[in-house]
């Protein structure tokens, strides 16, 4: 029946418009995979650096702040910052590419809402971690970056695809575990930012990116 087809079409269109107007759908799986690889490289660089200086992450945490600790700490912070900047640039690049392909606008009210929801926990966590580092609570830095990153993702879940909520919960759990076993913080950090991102990226790619590719 022709009428039924039109009704079905109408309903589908309503659903699509509702989703498109409330969710940022241009997050690409490639961004997650790239972020994961960068984080693993960053973690490997940290371990190599510490190995070369013959100190373990665990002893670094217990060192009193001063000359012996400050160089490795600066290295770790710079290392993490480089990973963060490159991963963010990758996310922006791949989102931009995907939005362009699907004809969506990258800068919309939804994007602004999404960024705001991400930014509040991230900036809070960033400042908190800097304060903690300054107060010689270096062992809390890696765990808390995981926890606050996870909170940011769960918070953003309303404005993008749902998979991000699961990634967020995994990051929070790992961050809490890392707080309990903070001597292994670097390992947890590598798992949380490296491996989880890769799994998330592959999931996203299979679910959304591939479809757009095959449909042209």
């Amino acid at each position: 029946m022709k009428k039924t087809e039109k009704h079905l079409h109408d309903l589908n269109e309503i659903r699509q418009i509702m989703e498109r107007s409330t969710k940022f759908l241009s997050l690409s799986g490639w961004a997650g995979i790239l972020a994961g690889i960068l984080a693993i490289l960053g973690t490997a660089a940290a371990f190599l650096y510490l190995d070369n200086r013959a100190i373990s992450y665990e002893t670094l945490l217990t060192l009193p702040q001063g000359d012996t600790a400050s160089a490795p700490l600066s290295f770790l912070i710079a290392d993490a910052m480089i990973v963060l900047v490159l991963a963010l640039s990758g996310a922006v690049f791949f989102s931009y590419r995907k939005a362009k392909k699907s004809g969506e606008k990258i800068w919309s009210p939804v994007t602004k809402r999404l960024l705001f929801q991400l930014a509040v926990p991230l900036v809070t966590g960033g400042i908190l971690v800097l304060i903690l580092a300054g107060q010689r609570n270096v062992h809390l830095v890696a765990p808390f970056t995981l926890v606050f990153y996870g909170l940011a993702l769960v918070n953003a879940g309303k404005y993008t695809t749902r998979e991000i909520v699961w990634l967020g919960i995994a990051e929070i759990t790992t961050g809490l575990a890392a707080t309990g076993w903070s001597q292994h913080g670097l390992w947890f950090w590598g798992a949380g930012f490296g491996i989880y991102h890769i799994i998330y990226g592959i999931t996203l790619y299979h679910k959304y990116d591939r479809k757009t590719v095959t449909h042209g």
Binding site: I17, M18, S21, P109
Partner: peptide, 17 residues
């Protein structure tokens, strides 16, 4: 139909959006 769909899930949407 489209206008109503957008407005039923978003508050105050401007013309260009």
């Amino acid at each position: 139909l489209g206008v109503m769909s957008v407005l039923s899930v978003n508050e105050w949407v401007d013309f260009n959006t």
